[in-house]
Design a protein around this nucleic acid. Structure first.
Length: 474
RNA sequence: GCGCCCUUCGUCUAUCGGUUAGGACGACAGCCUUUCACGUUGUAAAGACGGGUUCGACUCCCGUAGGGCGCGCCA
């Protein structure tokens, strides 16, 4: 019986959960699910300066929203530093590491010199074989890993293939700082090993680290886990993701009104494929997912496609479920909370009734929320001359909106309203298209123009209708 | 500078030596709808470049160009 599959997502809490991290988490989660394994969550917070509990909270929140659940306790890497130190000592004892007394300044000078002479920037191994007895008394040493100097290190990557890196290009990295704290590459290896991680899935930016980590695994006599380095996600312009484009936290995507399921679907298709399949449920993804579907080149983030996908998910989500999503979404946008408190049972019923018409034309929850504005408008609205003017001179009609609205609010059915409105308009010689603009404005609550009820009121009153009709004709 | 990696329509991608190079988003055009949206039909749109290998290359090899990642007492 083979050991269970264990994947892990290991973000550093220096900021929000960005889109690339979200996809990495998704792949780890999906793979674990598909193999009946577990996904652990580890917070890489060894850098105390830059880590924050707020960031940890944001990451957990983001993962939860995306529906990516982890197994077991959240591991804090910082809580395990003693274990890391022990391993560093063991490496020392095994002759696989050594004390280095170079000061940061010396190292800086070394780097600068190498750069000036256009030589590779690497530690020159000064203390590798030097007698510690000659060490300066005033310098606190770091511990460096004794990296093999000849041969090559192979990373058998599930996505990148067999990646071979010459050992001469890998210098002796610091595994324990002069303050006695471990560095990333040591901590990762120790934690992944101790957490029984069998499969590491992360961004290609860690590929070189993978080689260094492989050397540490080997030095400790530990089994090297399966590794998969997924290509990065770039911004729409092909450049590295920055705050300008997609480098937003997942909470930003939530605030933009995307559904978790849609985002999962979109993210999965970014860098991974299963033939021509585009739209698939997460359960289907779990069934299909495998590392061989992962591509090698970076993908650009395309909001247009995400939006289209999201529209599809909105349209295909059952009304009640969509309403729940919307309600959960409200606190995350401006004015949402005020609207939320006004939703009682009666309103809930109205919303549910209006949902079929609403979701048909919304690509995001933001749009859905906007089109539902008419349901929250305080009435009656004042129907002044200016408003009447807008009504008469308006642009194109929104007949089905009108019908939908009434179908959701009054006892009218969409079709009967449509028929009625049509009849009224025809009788008065008014082109219905005249109503569009104010109707839309009323629907979205973005203007002071007449609300839907006022329009209907007018339509229902023969004399006003006739009067408006006259104005419209002249 | 050194190392590793990448390169098919504008974008995400299929293709695992033999295809009219397929799908999706976007774009454009039509249909449906007395609006919008949805839906639907169609059109334009791609193998970076140069060499090989092969009966035959998008697919394999080499080179060039372009791009990405890494080279911290950050993770």
């Amino acid at each position: 019986m083979s050991s269970p599959i264990v994947t892990r997502f290991a973000p550093s809490p220096t900021g929000f959960l960005h889109i690339g991290g979200a996809r990495t988490a998704l792949f780890n989660w999906v793979y674990a699910k598909s193999k009946g394994g577990q996904m652990r969550l580890r917070i890489e917070d060894t850098d105390r300066e830059r880590s924050s509990t707020a960031a940890v909270a944001a990451i957990l929140d983001g993962l939860t929203w995306l529906g990516l659940t982890w197994d077991g306790e959240v591991v804090s890497q910082n809580a395990r530093v003693q274990r890391h130190r022990d391993v560093a000592q063991e490496l020392l004892a095994r002759g696989k590491a050594y004390y280095c007394y170079c000061s940061p300044q010396e190292l800086e000078a070394m780097r600068a010199k190498a750069e000036a002479e256009k030589r590779p920037i690497r530690y020159d191994g000064t203390w590798r074989d030097r007698d510690p007895a000659t060490a300066p008394a005033d310098v606190k040493p770091v511990i460096r890993f004794k990296s093999p100097q000849t041969g090559e290190t192979v990373v058998d990557d599930q996505a990148q293939g067999r990646v071979v890196i010459p050992n001469k290009d890998l210098d002796d990295l610091i595994i324990l700082r002069s303050d006695g704290n471990p560095t990333y590459n040591l901590s990762v290896v120790v934690d992944d090993h101790d957490m029984a991680v069998t499969h590491i899935v992360r961004g290609v930016d860690h590929l070189t680290n993978a080689a260094r980590q492989t050397q540490i695994y080997l030095a400790m006599g530990w089994t090297v886990p399966s590794m998969t380095h997924v290509p990065l996600i770039h911004g729409p312009d092909g450049a590295k993701l920055s705050k300008r484009h997609g480098a937003l936290g997942v909470e930003a995507y939530r605030a933009m009104g995307y559904l978790p399921a849609a985002l999962r679907n979109y993210l999965a298709r970014l860098g991974w494929s299963h033939g021509d399949d585009e739209i698939f449920a997460t359960s289907q993804l779990v069934e299909w997912f495998d590392f061989d579907g992962i591509g090698k080149s970076a993908a650009r983030f395309d909001f247009a496609k995400l939006e289209n996908l999201n529209g599809h998910y909105i349209r295909h989500t059952p009304d009640a479920e969509l309403l729940d999503h919307w309600l959960a979404f409200l606190p995350h946008i401006e004015g949402g909370s005020e609207r939320l408190v006004r939703i009682d049972n009666a309103m809930n019923t109205k919303l549910l009734k209006a949902m079929p018409g609403l979701k048909e034309r919304a690509k995001t929850l933001v749009e859905l929320n906007a089109s539902a504005a008419y349901l929250f408008v305080k009435r009656p609205l004042a129907m002044d001359d200016k408003a009447r003017q807008i009504l008469v001179d308006g642009g194109k009609a929104e007949l089905s909106d009108l019908a939908t609205v009434l179908g959701g609010v009054a006892d009218w059915t969409a079709s009967s309203l449509e028929t009625a409105v049509k009849a009224k308009a025809e009788a008065s010689g008014i082109k219905l298209s005249k109503y569009a603009q104010p109707l839309r404005a009323a629907l979205t609550g973005t203007s002071t123009s007449p609300g839907i009820f006022d329009v209907l009121e007018v339509l229902g009153r023969e004399e006003s209708l006739a009067r408006i009709g006259d104005q419209a004709r002249t």
